[in-house]
């Protein structure tokens, strides 16, 4: 087990190194120029070129890459080319909303989607099943921003139950946090619920046909225990996996919901950095999201053996 964990953690390093190379090359080979963005509308090409030199953007590519790697190894993510702010600081200030809303989203999704999937499988081919499945196909078919706008117009503008925008940290004001985070989380959760509910249903359907379930039922185990103790436990591995895979979808959705609800999170930070060609910020953010993705999936893989004792590494 321990050996397996160490091997998996070591395997993360080459993945991140390749991500770093891909991102670096992609940015440097692109036509954008942060110096021109920095200089504004009235600058002349000569002035822009002087700024490029000052920023080190006229150095040969390999020099720039080695410099960046050296910084990374010292735990330094660099400084934003545009605002001259330390990239760590920028991420620190923005990460709290994203993480909190993502956690709320995952919580809502799992709490809603797993029972939905279980019920759909249990009441297979009834209206409940069709309702769940209709929802889950719809969840895949509507763009995230449209869902966000619909929620805003219903809950914030028509009913006036919730604020329209912004973010309050839970440490500052817990109620305020929920008031502002619930709509973005629900928006993000739509596609996630669709994904998890379908997986849960499919996985439960397979398990419910197994002999031991029939045996359990025959032995008079209550229906709730059959579903949640026996069946769900055995169906859990694919469900966990889909939560991990869906994590990438979540990061993608964050970018959009942060724009719609005006949340100062890292999704918007990354898109803004891409549009402004702020290389150090883009590099750091993509490495960070890739690292989180890999870690989450590692944790999920490891959790299999906890859920399902038959799995050993």
């Amino acid at each position: 087990m321990l050996g397996y964990i160490i091997r998996r953690i070591l395997a993360i390093l080459p993945v991140l190194l390749i991500v770093a190379v891909i991102v670096f090359l992609m940015l440097r080979l692109s036509p954008g120029d942060p110096a021109a963005i920095l200089a504004g509308d009235a600058a002349t090409p000569a002035q822009i070129d002087r700024i490029r030199t000052e920023l080190g953007l006229n150095d040969p590519l390999h020099v720039q890459f080695i410099t960046w790697m050296g910084q990374l190894l010292q735990g330094d993510l660099g400084t934003s080319l545009i605002s001259r702010t330390d990239v760590w600081t920028m991420i620190e200030r923005r990460i709290d909303p994203t993480i909190n809303i993502a956690l709320l989203t995952i919580f809502i999704s799992v709490m809603l989607a797993v029972p939905m999937g279980v019920i759909a499988a249990w009441k297979h081919r009834t209206w409940a099943d069709y309702l769940v499945m209709t929802f889950s196909v719809l969840g895949f078919s509507i763009p995230v921003f449209v869902i966000g706008y619909i929620f805003i117009s219903i809950f914030s503008l028509q009913l006036r139950w919730l604020p329209v925008q912004g973010y309050t940290a839970p440490s500052e004001d817990l109620l305020g946090f929920f008031q502002r985070a619930i709509l973005p989380a629900l928006t993000l959760a739509t596609i996630y619920i669709a994904l998890i509910a379908r997986m849960t249903r499919a996985s439960m359907l397979e398990v419910l046909n197994e002999d031991y379930i029939r045996t359990a039922r025959a032995k008079g185990v209550s229906e709730r225990d059959v579903l949640f103790r026996h069946a769900l436990r055995n169906a859990a591995v694919p469900i966990m996996t889909i939560i991990g895979i869906g994590f990438a979808l979540l990061i993608g959705g964050v970018v959009v919901t942060e724009s719609v609800f005006n949340i100062p999170g890292i999704g918007r930070l990354t898109v803004d950095a891409i549009l402004a060609r702020d290389y150090p910020v883009i590099q750091a953010m993509i490495l960070l999201t890739a690292g989180i993705y890999v870690l989450v999936n590692l944790l999920i893989d490891l959790s299999y053996s906890l859920i399902d004792p038959r799995i050993r590494y």
Partner: peptide
Amino acid sequence: SLMAIPAI
């Protein structure tokens, strides 16, 4: 590595 980078 490509899978680890968010598609969007």
